[in-house]
């Protein structure tokens, strides 16, 4: 058990023939992910890394029974790639692409509401169920099968949480990077709901950052619906207002989106917050040791 992806997940890669796609596909295969095909318009019929390449997602699905797709295409074609996957009945789409215009995302999200497709990202490091399935660009070797569900808006900061939980021996059930863009697919609440229902997950680490109000909304959800212990860290308490900090979504504007407001909401919801990013794993361990 775990959430969203596991041993049986059959994955295709849209953009497998590109430099980034190929590089990461190789690593996913080595990790043991069931990567079964690639899709690149115009390259159908060829083979890369021993995998068949199709022109259309629908053809790849028909031939391989794939149920998930990971996308490495440039921002200008990413919305098209996501919609093509949705139309072909892919249940889970992970979009790594960074730099999709926000108004494209608004239209995409509205259009996706007609499909039963879950989107992770864009601008996401991906998702991994350690020892079973890696759909993303994260370093596989720092992960360890275990009991902590991690959900994060960041990339390398997620690796920090992963490494800390591996080191204290808790390991991870599933790790989801929901992406650093202001408008994106799965959110904190979706993942919290799945982690709460997942039998393997015993505790949850939420890694937030400045900008927007998703952490506040997650706090309200946790208070009402989550019984499992939650540790949270919010990056950017030292960030100035009105400056975008790397991620398109990481900006404090006026009274909204500050780390302080997020910490206050999470604390009120009974979440174990840490102000020190080096202590996410230690805090979780402290809870389990009682």
């Amino acid at each position: 058990m775990s959430i969203l992806v596991g041993r049986k997940t059959r994955v295709i890669c849209q953009g497998l023939t590109g430099r980034q796609g190929r590089y990461h596909a190789e690593r996913m295969l080595r990790y043991g992910t069931q990567l079964v095909a690639g899709v690149t318009p115009g390259k159908g019929g060829s083979e890369v890394l021993g995998l068949p390449i199709y022109d259309l997602v629908q053809d790849a699905v028909d031939e391989t029974d794939a149920d998930a797709s990971i996308i490495f295409v440039p921002p200008a074609s990413a919305v098209d790639a996501i919609m093509e996957a949705a139309k072909a009945g892919i249940g889970l789409v992970v979009c790594i692409t960074e730099g999709i215009p926000v108004q494209d995302m608004l239209r995409l999200k509205a259009a996706l509401s007609f499909y039963n497709t879950r989107l992770i990202g864009p601008n996401s490091p991906g998702i991994i169920t350690p020892g079973e399935c890696k759909m993303g660009i994260m370093p596989g070797q720092i992960h360890q099968p275990g009991i902590i569900g991690i959900v994060s808006r960041s990339g390398t900061l997620t690796y920090e949480a992963v490494q800390q939980t591996s080191k204290v021996g808790l390991g991870q059930s599933t790790v989801v990077g929901i992406g650093g863009d202001p408008v994106h697919g799965l959110g904190f609440i979706d993942c919290l709901e799945m982690f709460e229902a997942d039998r393997k997950t015993k505790g949850i680490i939420l890694v937030g950052e400045i900008g927007g109000s998703e952490e506040e909304e997650a706090a309200a959800y946790i208070q009402r619906h989550v019984r499992k212990p939650v540790v949270a860290y919010v990056a950017g308490i030292s960030a100035p207002r009105n400056r975008r900090m790397g991620h398109a979504g990481a900006i404090v504007s006026r009274a909204q989106g500050s780390a302080r407001s997020k910490y206050a909401a999470l604390e009120e919801a009974g979440v174990m917050v840490v102000f020190n990013p080096a202590l996410m794993g230690a805090k979780m361990l402290e809870y389990f040791r009682g």
Binding site: G155, E160, E209, R243, H247, P277, A278
Partner: peptide, 27 residues
Amino acid sequence: GAGLAMATMDLLKLHGGEPANFLDVGG
């Protein structure tokens, strides 16, 4: 990485230091 860059600034502050900049060299 942007998130880790912010976290690093936060940690400096926690130890009484003041960051001169945010810089993400890319993940």
